[in-house]
Amino acid sequence: MEVELLSIGEPGVRASVDVAAIFAAHQLGLVRLALMMVGDRATAEDVVQEAFARTHAGRKRLRDPDRALAYVRSAVLNGCRSVLRRRVTAVRRAVPYEPPVWSAESAALVGEDRREVLVALRGLPRRQREALILRYYLELSDLEIAETMGIGASTARSTIARGLAALGRVLGEGGKA
């Protein structure tokens, strides 16, 4: 039996990416991204914290540092999906910790029009909602959105187009009724 033991700690074999540094640098943006998805800030911060804990210490070492941010965004997106899934199944909390950002009770959001848009956005299918947020909040390219969501670039493109059209219909603007 031949056993070669070269790999442990050998430098250069795999580029290491400091997940902690990425989270630190992008925490605000990630929390905001999560907020759009889950609605309230406390949950959004939890999601980011959890994504950080899970991806830290090379839990999933990235071979390509250029893709690190996309990976971290995906982790946050997945965290949001879990939260939303849990909400569907779990018993609602008796007292909401914080009203969702799109709710009428939310003091954080002043504009009625803003609220209307967010409520409409929330009503879209999950993929459309995610794609629209990644495009119109983070201003990501089709390719970046595809990577973050784990879908193809052309799918990302068409999802955005469909989402935008659906949003327009709900808001009573443009397109078919």
Binding site: L35, M36, W102, L109, R114, Y137, L164
Partner: peptide, 11 residues
């Protein structure tokens, strides 16, 4: 959409 998301983010 951009305006709404920006405002929500700014909270």
């Amino acid at each position: 959409l951009r305006a709404a998301l920006t405002e929500a983010g700014d909270t």
